Simulated assay, not measured.
Amino acid sequence: MISPAYCVMMAQYNSWQNRCMRQAMEQLDEADLTADRGAFFKSILGIANHLLWADRMWMSRLGDTVEKPDVAASGSTAITPTSAVWSAERFRLDGQMELWAEGLHAIDLTGNLRWYSGALGRDTARPVALCVAHMFNHQTHHRGQIHAMLTAAGARTADTDLFIMPGLE
């Protein structure tokens, strides 16, 4: 399904896109970032926090260097109080994700991952490769929402196309 090289590329894409998103977020004030924009997770910062929370959750399951969030999904939108705190936490986690991906071997992407799923309300198991693909897909989905909100709020946003990511040549 996926390979270690795919994981490295997607972790790099995640970091690049989060840097671009951070630059766009810096163009707005905190009131703009926390305004309810009618999305499921309400605001730009709310979605960014949820994504940070979810990435921490998945990385705590997939590796041994990221601590599981200490709040449930219902509290995920408020795990950082400001965009500055979010930015620092995001930068740190992105580095951890890249290091995790760079250390992967094909065997690490086989078998099942077992965990208690709050979404399902029970213990569950799914193929590791599927969980990793889901993590990267989840990132792209929510960054797309944030990108649209940033654009609507008047921020200049960067391109999101994977094929133009710096360093692919």
Rank of each mutant, 00 (worst) to 15 (best):
Asp32Gly: 10
Thr151Leu: 03
Thr151Ile: 00
Cys7Ser: 10
Gly167Leu: 12
Ala148Leu: 13
Leu104Met: 04
Thr160Lys: 01
Lys42Asn: 14
Thr65Val: 06
Arg19Met: 10
Ser76Gly: 08
Gly103Arg: 10
Asp36Val: 09
Met9Asp: 11
Trp100Ala: 05
Gln17Ile: 11
Arg122Ala: 14
Gln12Lys: 07
Trp86Asp: 07
Ala39Asp: 02
Trp53Ile: 05
Ser74Asn: 14
Asp64His: 07
Ala31His: 14
Asp32Val: 02
Glu89His: 07
Gly95Gln: 08
Leu162Tyr: 11
Ser76Trp: 03
Met59Val: 02
Val128Glu: 03
Ser60Met: 04
Thr77Tyr: 10
Phe163Ser: 14
Asp70Cys: 09
Gly111Trp: 01
Arg37Leu: 12
Pro166Cys: 08
Ala84Trp: 08
Leu62Trp: 00
Leu93Val: 07
Leu120Thr: 01
Asn14Lys: 08
Ala84His: 07
Arg19Val: 08
Ile47Gln: 02
Ala73Asn: 15
Ala119Phe: 11
Asn49Trp: 13
Ile47Val: 13
Arg114Thr: 09
Phe41Met: 07
Glu98Lys: 13
Val66Phe: 08
Thr110Met: 08
Arg37Gln: 06
Arg92Leu: 12
Thr124Glu: 15
Val85Trp: 12
Leu162Cys: 05
Phe91Asn: 14
Arg143Gly: 03
Leu168Cys: 14
Asn137Arg: 08
Gly111Ser: 02
Ala84Thr: 09
His105Ser: 11
Phe163Asn: 12
Phe40Val: 02
Leu62Met: 00
Gly118Gln: 15
Ala125Met: 11
Val132Pro: 00
Gly75Leu: 00
Thr34Asn: 13
Gly95Met: 05
Ala148Gln: 15
Gly118Ser: 14
Leu33Phe: 01
Gln96Tyr: 12
His138Asn: 02
Leu51Gln: 13
Ala119Trp: 09
Leu113Thr: 08
Leu52Met: 06
Arg122His: 13
Val8Lys: 14
Arg90Asp: 13
Lys42His: 15
Gln12Phe: 02
Leu120His: 07
Gly75Asp: 01
Ala31Glu: 15
Arg56Asn: 08
Ser43Arg: 01
Glu98Gly: 12
His142Arg: 13
His141Met: 08
His147Phe: 11
Thr160Ala: 03
Thr151Phe: 01
Met97Trp: 09
